[in-house]
Amino acid sequence: MKLRSLLFVPADSDRKIAKADACGADALILDLEDSVVPGRKAFARDAVKSLLGAASRNWRFLVRINPLGTGLTLEDLVAVVRPGLDGIVIPKVNGVQEVERISHYVDVLEVATGIPSGHVKLLVVATETPAAMLGFASYVTACPRLVAMTWGAEDLSAALGALTNKEPNGDWTFPYQVARAQCLFAANAAGVLALDTLYSDYRDQDGLAESCRIARRDGFVGRIAIHPDQVATINACFTPSDADLAHARRVIAAFASQPDVGTVGIDGKMYDIPHLVAAKRALASVGEVIDE
């Protein structure tokens, strides 16, 4: 599943959904959780159901449900797990056990609604509770539906009673640097996509681009957007350039020409197996198949 950019959209706002439709995001996350007040949850579910039955679209259809413990999770799932849905975003999980529980619910609902088994994928916001921060190792054996993990600082900050989660220069304070790193490690250990959290100042395109550059440098493959204007920047930052792809092909070709060696030289520089892995990942990110 290609997920460079994932744009949150309140599920109860027709205007915002219409604006998001053509923004170029790889996925829209129709939100039933924080952006929808309690009195409009039922309306938002009905809006999602109507949109799922609408014409074809050029983005992945994801829905963020309300977390376990709210008493709303099952109602959300029953309303939205139907043909047209690509995935569920699970917020405020306390650990992989809750992911497995929701996966079992989806198993049943896929059968009930005629969706092919395993089609609906799961994406986890993995750092929003203190308990979640203690169980990352368990994601190594996560369910097959899990395709991506992201992290969030605001709910964790509130749960910890932190006065702020940012340094004066805008950098994350240490606890949230840990959360970000743990998410990145856990996603890669589980073999799923690591997605960086949102960049809150949607007017600061330069800051967003620099933050994306750092995220990609560190190993994230996409990120959450909170405004349509952020999507183009995120897509550009997480898409390998033509030069990047050309270099990746050279690395792969060099190793293919010398299958019995662990290092190769290109333009006076030495490349080893981790460089080969990175080259294959770059080409895979644009759908280029690598013959083994």
Rank of each mutant, 00 (worst) to 15 (best):
E75H: 13
F136P: 04
K280V: 01
L276R: 14
G191L: 04
N165R: 09
G114A: 06
A236G: 06
D76T: 01
A209Y: 05
T70R: 06
I234A: 00
M133K: 05
L163W: 10
V63M: 05
H275Y: 12
E154R: 05
V120D: 01
N58C: 07
D26I: 11
E98C: 14
C212L: 03
L163N: 11
A189G: 15
G71V: 08
S56T: 11
A236M: 08
D155K: 13
I214T: 10
L28Q: 07
L52V: 09
H247A: 11
W59A: 07
V9P: 15
P259K: 04
D218A: 06
S103K: 01
E210V: 03
A194L: 12
L198I: 15
L6W: 11
L122D: 01
A142N: 03
S50M: 12
D272S: 13
T197R: 02
V221Y: 01
A148Q: 10
G53Y: 01
A55M: 05
L208T: 10
Q205K: 10
T150F: 12
H227F: 08
N58M: 05
A54N: 11
A284F: 14
A209F: 06
L245I: 04
G114C: 06
A142R: 01
G114K: 00
A25V: 07
A137N: 13
T127N: 03
G95I: 00
F185I: 06
P144Y: 15
A148P: 15
V147P: 11
N66D: 06
N58E: 13
V111M: 11
L134E: 12
D46R: 12
A187V: 08
L6S: 14
L193V: 11
L77F: 07
L146V: 04
R45H: 05
A54Y: 03
L146C: 04
A126K: 04
D171V: 00
I65K: 07
R203L: 11
D218C: 05
M149H: 09
P116M: 03
S157E: 02
L156C: 07
D206R: 06
L198F: 15
D201T: 07
T263R: 08
E110S: 08
P168A: 08
T263C: 12
G207Y: 03
S241R: 00
S211T: 06
D34M: 09
M149G: 10
C212N: 09
R223M: 15
D26C: 07
R216D: 06
L68K: 12
R249V: 00
Y105H: 15
A153R: 00
P240I: 09
V277P: 08
G265L: 07
M133V: 03
T141W: 07
Y199V: 04
S5C: 03
